[in-house]
């Protein structure tokens, strides 16, 4: 890590930084919590919000599984 420049090390896109590893998992975790609670606390549009946010998890799985290297 010491060979990397300061500016590189500060960005989330650099291996070894906290958000490089945990950025996406945190986003997906927040999306999951929202999806699970939205339908429990509301109806109508909240049900749609729930379906879309939980459905997004499956989109993420499909994207990386079916097209490895296709980034």
């Amino acid at each position: 890590m010491s060979t990397r420049s300061e500016s590189q090390a500060r960005s989330a896109g650099t291996p070894g930084r906290f958000l490089f590893v945990w950025g996406m998992p945190l986003v997906l975790a927040a999306l999951s919590v929202f999806g699970l609670l939205a339908a429990l606390l509301g109806t109508g549009v909240w049900h749609w919000a729930s379906w879309l946010s939980l459905g997004w998890l499956l989109v993420v799985i499909a994207r990386y599984w079916l097209r490895p290297g296709g980034r």
Partner: peptide, 22 residues
Amino acid sequence: YGPFMKKLEFGTVRAERSRRIK
């Protein structure tokens, strides 16, 4: 997950390596 993914970008699937790695 942390130590495993330290140098790998999120969602990396190394399909070209061994079946176990994939």
